[in-house]
Design a binder for these strands. Structure first.
Length: 290
DNA sequence: TTCCTGAGTA
DNA sequence: TACTCAGGAA
């Protein structure tokens, strides 16, 4: 970005780290640097808040402390532990990543960007989060919070490459863990969709300052609002996955379990089978978890 | 109602 | 680029 001089970056780093330091002491669950535990947490944090992830994460890494342990379990067992987090495709991808780590990397989570991005379900955010939070490499993590902060700071909508490159300029050398945690926390607690600019350590340097159209709307990396959950396909899928966690379901009961018309249920069931989240048993006329 | 610490697909 | 994908909290 044009006006980002080294001196300005240094000043912004100081003010943000000063603001964030006391807050981050209250994140004990981030104390781990175990790459597998970090990878599990980042999968869970894709589209799910910290408060809901924390207990599930503890149970998961307790049950599957290594990639090999996870890979040797059935996807059905993984899905049962995942219950309540939503987006079960993440569980499928985590299970597949555990297998890839076991076979391709000798059971050790890789510490380079290319290898991480090659894992199923691992994108730009998760790959860099593992590098920063497990290996403490000097990389910039860009989640929806940071993308929102950067767009507002710049005062305009940003393109995907711009967001990452601007974020890269901000990474405090040798302090990427603290920097990325603090930066995300700023977006999560102050520079929220409804901002609290009077509490922001960057309010003086920000190009937007909460006045006029919000530059983060439509800017790269900023999540768009979710469609409503009630009545959605997600709700119906979730109902079936939850029921299957307790045992198999007869094909003829699927529509009732989903509380959807039979033709809608049939379509959703096909999608779930294609996603590898349910398995048909033609001989018994039932479906189950994999 | 809104908001979630994204990735895959087309 | 646009769309989908759970479920709970506030």
């Amino acid at each position: 970005m044009e006006r980002l001089t080294p001196q300005l970056v240094a000043d912004l780093q100081d003010s943000l780290l000063g603001w964030a330091a006391p807050r981050l002491r209250e994140l004990p669950w981030r104390a781990t640097r175990d790459p597998w535990a970090v990878l599990v947490s980042e999968f869970m944090l894709q589209q799910t808040g910290v408060a809901r992830v924390l207990p599930k994460w503890s149970a998961f890494v307790d049950e599957y402390p290594t990639p090999a342990a996870c890979a040797s379990a059935s996807l059905g067992d993984i899905l049962r532990l995942w219950q309540g987090l939503g987006y079960p495709r993440r569980a499928r991808n985590l299970h597949a990543s555990a297998g890839a780590i076991t076979t391709r990397h000798g059971g050790t989570v890789p510490d380079d960007l290319e290898s991480l991005l090659a894992l199923p379900g691992v994108g730009p955010y998760t790959a860099r989060a593992v590098l920063a939070f497990a290996f403490e490499h000097d990389v910039a993590v860009v989640d929806t919070n940071i993308a929102r902060v950067l767009a507002r700071f710049a005062g305009r909508r940003l393109k995907p490459r711009e967001v990452q490159s601007i974020a890269d300029e901000f990474v405090a050398e040798g302090a990427s863990w603290l920097w990325n945690q603090g930066f995300m926390d700023l977006g999560a607690t102050v520079c929220r969709p409804e901002p609290a600019c009077d509490e922001c350590p960057w309010t003086h340097e920000c190009a937007w300052r909460g006045e006029g159209d919000d530059p983060s709307v439509g800017s790269a990396g900023v999540s768009v609002a979710q469609s409503r959950f009630e009545g959605s396909d997600r709700q119906a899928r979730g109902r079936l996955i939850k029921a299957l966690g307790a045992g198999t379901v007869k094909i003829g009961d699927v529509a009732r379990v989903m509380d959807r018309p039979s033709e809608v249920a049939a379509k959703l069931l096909t999608d779930l089978e294609r996603d590898g989240l349910v398995v048909f048993h033609r001989e018994s006329g039932s479906v189950s978890l994999p």
